[in-house]
Computed example of a mutant assay.
Amino acid sequence: MAESTPSPRGTDLGDLLRRLRRRADLSQRELAARAGVPQPAVARIESGRAADPRYRTVERLVRAAGGRMRVDVEPSAAEQPTAAEQPTAPEQPTAPVPHDDMRDRAGRRYPAHLDVWEVHEPRDWPGAWWAEWYSLPARLYPLPLPPATYRLNRDYRDERREREAVRRSVTVRRVTGPAVPATAWRFVAELRGGELIGELRAHEESPHLRWGDGERAEEREAVLDGVLVLARYRRLGIGRRLVQTLLEALGPVRVRALTEQPGISFLHACGFGIEASRPAAMRFEASVSGARRRRW
Rank of each mutant, 00 (worst) to 15 (best):
G36M: 02
M69L: 10
I238S: 00
L200M: 03
A64M: 12
P262M: 07
P142G: 07
C270L: 09
W185F: 07
S206C: 12
R29I: 12
E190G: 10
R235M: 06
L114Y: 00
L143D: 15
P111I: 10
R167D: 01
E190Y: 11
R54M: 10
R283A: 11
A95R: 04
V170D: 09
R60A: 15
G127F: 10
P93R: 08
A189Y: 08
S169E: 15
V71A: 08
Q28M: 10
R292A: 13
W296T: 12
E91P: 13
R108T: 03
E159I: 09
H120C: 05
S27F: 04
G251C: 04
R294K: 04
R163K: 15
G273M: 07
A291I: 04
E118H: 10
H208Q: 02
R234M: 01
H99M: 02
D225V: 02
T11C: 13
V172F: 08
V170C: 07
G194R: 07
S7T: 12
Q28L: 03
I45L: 01
R163T: 03
S287D: 14
L209R: 15
V116D: 06
P126Q: 02
G177A: 07
E205P: 14
V58K: 05
A112D: 05
L250S: 09
P178L: 00
F187H: 13
A231M: 08
A148F: 10
L20N: 03
R60P: 01
E219L: 15
R283G: 09
V223K: 14
E59P: 08
G273V: 12
S27R: 08
A131Q: 05
V119A: 11
D155I: 10
L247I: 09
I238N: 02
R168V: 07
L191S: 05
R173K: 11
R235L: 06
P8N: 09
A269N: 01
A95S: 01
P147I: 01
D52H: 14
E59V: 13
V229R: 03
R256W: 15
A286D: 02
A32Q: 07
H203G: 09
T57I: 05
A128R: 01
R108D: 04
A231T: 12
L246R: 12
R34I: 01
M1W: 09
W129D: 14
R63A: 13
R49W: 08
D213N: 10
R105P: 05
V166G: 05
R240Y: 02
E132R: 15
A148N: 06
E59G: 11
S7N: 15
R234D: 01
R173P: 06
R21E: 00
P111K: 08
R254A: 14
